[in-house]
Design a protein around this nucleic acid. Structure first.
Lengths: 343, 343
DNA sequence: CTGTTAGCGCCTTCAA
DNA sequence: TTGAAGGCGCTAACAG
């Protein structure tokens, strides 16, 4: 395969015996619009494949002032799976619209974040997705304000940039519903964090849980407060159980807490779901790995990422907040008096 | 902030009262080389910041035929954390060399993979990192052969493209060493897969384990064969334990298998590490979440990604295979007769 | 229906 | 020490 020199559009045009203009029109699918002779089209297309012609996108970018590229800023720490899923979703959606994703990880460093954004702008990306791994309220960097941008898993304090978020309130209702459907009405405790930083998911979920329970004539028995990690979940739930109360059910704010909760329950000789039911949030792989498999309200990261790109590349310049539903991944961690857990 | 029209280099030059040429030299740090008057430099730099000038990289790319961009092809399924770490590493390294990462996920689809590569080439990336989530032997896509490329976590069957891989053989030795250091000499079983697809890590690790044990006058008691998942690990180890043998130690080929192994051991009333020691491979978050914390030989994904980019962007056109060491993340899953586990 | 002309913004010989 | 001129490869008015 001789790869001597890059083939250019005029090479193709020359071989086909037409001008570069004509070749350009044909190769960009504007032959009809320009009403170009079919024979000419054939010749040009043939020349293009014969020469193995590929357009130089650098040149096209300069000329059209568009790059078919979207920048994605994430703050992921330690390359977690969540950010990764958002990127996957964004990537798929971008591709279906002939775009490609440029990634930049700020590692939580605000200054670096600014640099990354600037560099992307220098590269003339068609838009920027600004993503946070944990749902939060943020102050959008000034540089982004006048740009085409969409917030992913976060909202701007001044609500001036469109945003895509999970519907945590509905998610909370779903978590409660999973319990109610199992016939569980009381002794339901929530294991989770006090919101810190700009985190905003917790309170919404809690409200959803409370409202759903209330509508069923029930309520949250208590809140077991702790951080986000397996260890903290284990510690908090252990302490709670040491207190002597045996809960009917625990709703944990994420799957890691659920894992810690499983450990604590096992230590106290309590079985899931026979003695205690557990419902969680995240829908991560971990939920599937636990035994019994954990029922968890899914954080639809991939869908969030995809939607963000759709919004970014779409025609409408929405400024609103899009909330995406959180489906329930049913496991076997909820005792069911009324019906078997659905797969 | 008036953002009427894009500021160009000649705008800066004009304001500073020089030609675009001079401005270009100065702004690209070639003032010394060109021996440009300090006063001129000052004026130009000042004009640049006053105007908030940013070079148009599309233009620069076209002119220089370089894009300061590297493409990264991954086959990650379901946005796993591993690929994500490779991307993080690659991204950091790229940034330190003024490059940025363009990602493309093939989702294991060979045809799509080809398209993605082609598109990246069209975008004139300066090189391509071709990554696999699970260490494997591959046939590099034809289009990559004559390009600047580095294989990440895989090797080419015809060994014609440079590659970066974890040093699984040494990793195997380390796993065995972790046990030996604890004074464990016999009853060591390996839990893992039969290599399938192009996977190549398993056999190397096994050889490392075997050789290290042999050097200590010991050996692998048996191989417990199974797939890669928690469930399969659980099933295989459960069956093994049902057979009546109580192992001294189990080396699992990844952390998920270790989780399944923990579950099986618990079911059989065996405690880690008092009754059975466990050592694993991956060094994933999961290892930290398990109780007791799992000792695991770390797959250094981020470092692999970083090194791949270094090789890609470096001067030398190595064709060799770079093996990166796999450190041990010590947990508390190895019984220690001789010394306490190190943090 | 097709070709001519003219840049997009930048870098880089070459000349002064 | 600085400026003028040309072109990277492509697209888009504007003529024919």
């Amino acid at each position: 395969v001789p790869e001597s020199r890059r083939v250019t559009l005029s090479d193709v045009a020359e071989l086909a015996g037409v001008s570069a203009t004509t070749a350009s029109y044909i190769l960009n699918g504007r032959s009809d619009e320009m009403r170009i002779a079919v024979a000419t089209q054939e010749r040009v297309r043939r020349a293009a494949v014969d020469l193995n012609y590929r357009p130089n996108l650098s040149a096209r970018n300069l000329r059209t002032a568009r790059t078919q590229t979207v920048g994605m800023i994430t703050d992921l720490v330690a390359g977690g799976p969540f950010a990764s899923q958002m990127i996957t979703g964004a990537s798929v959606s971008a591709r279906s619209q002939d775009h490609v994703i440029l990634i930049g990880e700020s590692q939580g460093d605000v200054e670096l974040e600014g640099l990354l954004i600037t560099e992307m702008l220098d590269r003339r990306v068609d838009g920027i997705v600004y993503a946070k791994v944990v749902t939060a309220q943020v102050d959008v960097p000034e540089v982004l304000r006048n740009q085409r941008a969409v917030l992913l898993n976060c909202v701007d304090r001044s609500a001036t940039v469109p945003a895509v978020l999970p519907d945590d309130y509905e998610g909370g209702r779903s978590a409660a519903a999973a319990l109610l459907e199992g016939g569980i009405r009381g002794g339901i405790h929530v294991v989770g964090e006090r919101p810190l930083g700009g985190a905003i998911a917790g309170p919404l979920r809690y409200d959803g849980i409370r409202d759903a329970l209330r509508a069923a004539g029930s309520e949250v028995a208590s809140e077991i407060l702790c951080g986000w990690s397996v260890r903290e979940g284990f510690g908090a739930v252990s302490a709670f159980l040491d207190g002597g109360t045996v809960p009917q059910a625990l709703i944990t704010m994420n799957d890691r807490l659920a894992m810690g909760t499983y450990q604590a329950l096992a230590d106290h000789g309590l079985r899931v779901p026979a003695d205690v039911s557990v419902v969680s949030f995240d829908g991560s792989d971990l939920a599937q790995w636990l035994r019994p498999q954990l029922t968890s309200v899914v954080l639809p990261y991939a869908e969030l990422g995809a939607r963000a790109v759709d919004l970014l590349l779409g025609e409408h310049r929405d400024t609103g907040v899009t909330r995406m539903s959180m489906p329930v991944a049913a496991g076997r961690s909820v005792r069911s008096l009324t019906n078997a857990p659905r797969s």
